[in-house]
Amino acid sequence: MINWIAANKANLIIGIILLGIVAAIVVNLVKKLRRGGSTCAYCADADCCAHKEGRAETSN
C-alpha cells in the first residue's frame, strides 16, 4: 500500500489538485445557479445584465 502511494505520488498530487479545481468549479456554478437563475451562471458576460440598459439608450 505505502509502496503504491510512494510510486504514484506524482499522480496523486496532480490528481488531488485537479479534483480540487473541478470541485471548486462545480461548487461555484451551483452557487450561481441557485442565486441568480441559470443564465448568469453560463453567461459569457459578467455584465450580461448591465449591457441591456446601456444599449437601450441607443434607439427607441
Partner: peptide, 23 residues
C-alpha cells in the same frame, strides 16, 4: 426600432439579446 436592439446586442451575446426583447 425596439426590436432592432436585441439583434445588436446578440452580436455580443445572445442571452442579453433575448432578454432585451422583454421591453
Amino acid at each position: 426600432g425596439k426590436t432592432f436592439i436585441p439583434l445588436l446586442i446578440s452580436s455580443g451575446c445572445g442571452v442579453p439579446g433575448v432578454m432585451a426583447s422583454r421591453t
